[in-house]
Write a protein that binds this DNA or RNA. Structure first.
Lengths: 130, 130
DNA sequence: ATAATTGCAAAACGTTTGCAGTAAA
DNA sequence: TTTACTGCAAACGTTTTGCAATTAT
């Protein structure tokens, strides 16, 4: 794994993450590709997503189940607690926070900022119920 | 589970989280109590931690493995990528962020802010190696 | 007496890994 | 020819769950 070779599967996996706007999980990527590539293995999906994250080609969003983002620039996210959807948040990544957090003597390299709440769609459904 | 009864195990579990400063995982709490309560079950630990989190008596820190914090006030955390330790970060919780994030129409109720890097102890060890 | 809580064990879940075969360089 | 990559399946670590027994109310 010192040098990478071209892999058809890897490019397909990357393409799915790129086209999807929902920050898909490995399982979601797998499901998207399965019809097209019936022999595709879930292990291959995990391996390639992880490799691309290490290479800085994708960003990994930490959480109970990991999600992937083709936007490698650090930025905040929002999780809808009703439907589970993860979306981008339009507030600037504040690198100054890392500096602040380093006051305690820690060497801070990055941070993850996740917002929680209810997305507009789910808020609408809840309204109807009440 | 509508009303809660007193439980010796639950209070012991709470005490461990309270006394520990390392934001322990369920497994860590279990290991701490096992010598004292040899019949304690891991399932009981999970059930009680989760219940207390729901009741607002504990805070759950999202991540690949969930950690628990007896400080229920929202605040930022730092994860050392070398040793895995999780510690508090002394920067104020910015409720204004939730407002900003809500600009897209989302009802934002909270956020989690996790910093990543190397803690002073691990930084020292790496220095020695080099 | 009622029903919340327990211990135990099995299962569910997301993820990683070992391996023999395949394919890119 | 070399070795990265694949599919498959087994294993892993974390968490949840079903159940009968126990315990607080």
């Amino acid at each position: 794994m010192l040098l990478h070779r071209y892999s058809f599967q890897r490019e397909k996996i990357y393409q799915i993450v790129r086209e999807s706007k929902e920050h898909p999980t490995a399982e979601m990527v797998f499901a998207s590709l399965k019809p097209e590539l019936p022999k595709l293995s879930l292990g291959t999906v995990y391996r390639n997503l992880h490799q691309m994250a290490q290479d800085g080609r994708l960003q990994e969003l930490p959480g109970p189940t990991v999600r992937f983002d083709c936007n490698t620039k650090p930025h905040a996210h929002f999780t809808c607690e009703a439907c589970g959807k993860v979306s981008d948040v339009e507030i600037p990544y504040d690198a100054g926070l890392d500096f602040l957090a380093g006051a305690g003597g820690c060497q801070v390299t990055s941070h993850a900022l996740m917002f929680y709440g209810v997305c507009p769609q789910c808020a609408g459904k809840q309204e109807k119920k009440a």
